[in-house]
Design a protein around this nucleic acid. Structure first.
Lengths: 165, 165
DNA sequence: TAAGATTGAGATGTCAATCTTT
DNA sequence: AAAGATTGACATCTCAATCTTA
């Protein structure tokens, strides 16, 4: 993911410094391991995966009626619209949310959290939060948390610009 | 992924504070978006995905002979051994590495980077490094980089303990 | 025609079961 | 029997093509 290949002469993009490289390798490992670990906890304890939880959780926070257009929801959870569409279909089949065309403009689809979906989020949250604490938050110093928060915010801002699908 | 569900009374695990929550949502978004973005660049420019690149890259750094047991390599790249096995099989079929049983102990499999594999890493690295800079490193302050590095390192240490498969 | 959303085919990841060597 | 590695079945993600409404 990072790392210069042994050594080569000609091409010189700005290689990573030692410090950058070791930081990046750590991040890369985190990218590989964190999702699996959080997936495993949720799957085991609640029967849903991380992305499904994230979708339900974000939807549960939309005011005032836990309802949201697919394209807005995509903005809240990241990833592609087709991925979201697949996941939402699965969640609908399991009764955690339902979809309705937007009365205002039939091109939009509204995703609406059901009571069962809300119950699922409420039931799954404690275990998930505990895992997030254990694997990430509680191992950070206040300064690190601040830094991470800033990184995250920036990421969220950049995301606005993107388009996929 | 984080976030308390509206509000509930009884169960009180240590919920995330406002600050923790927004930091975590940012990280969660990063977990969703970064791999796709890096995957896309590598796939487009070099025909391999992020995890494949990571495997080849880490193998290219093993001294002195770019050779490594599967189980050691798994430690270098994270993830499960079966995932690694699948990826290595694909990379072998494409000629980027080969596998041989360890002469010392037939239970081990050695993964050996071929010249073609080395050439692939060398060719793919500049574009990948540029993407890593653009999407991560260059948008961080020195403090943030330090923090991220610390998180990563810790992750690497914890990983040692894990066992999967 | 364009925007939003969905679908289907193919690639990849996961989990449990299996195989090989010790 | 145990360790290391692989396999196969199934779930999920991605990309391109399609469908619907405006």
């Amino acid at each position: 993911m990072a790392d210069r290949p042994a050594r080569t002469a000609a091409e010189s993009p700005r290689w990573l410094t030692e410090k950058e490289q070791s930081a990046w390798i750590g991040v890369a490992l985190m990218l590989v391991e964190l999702p699996s670990a959080l997936d495993a906890q949720l799957e085991r304890d609640s029967g849903i995966n991380l992305f499904e939880y994230f979708v339900l959780s974000r939807l549960s926070m939309t005011e005032p009626d836990r309802t949201c257009r697919m394209s807005e929801l995509r903005g809240l959870v990241g990833g592609s619209l087709s991925r979201l569409s697949n996941v939402v279909k699965r969640l609908e089949q399991r009764g955690f949310l339902r979809r309705e065309p937007d009365p205002t403009d039939g091109r939009y689809t509204m995703a609406i959290l059901t009571d069962a979906g809300m119950a699922m989020v409420v039931a799954a949250a404690p275990g998930h939060v505990a895992a997030v604490r254990e694997l990430v938050i509680d191992s950070l110093t206040p300064d690190q948390l601040t830094a991470l928060g800033a990184i995250g915010e920036q990421r969220m801002r950049e995301r606005q610009a993107d388009q996929r699908d």
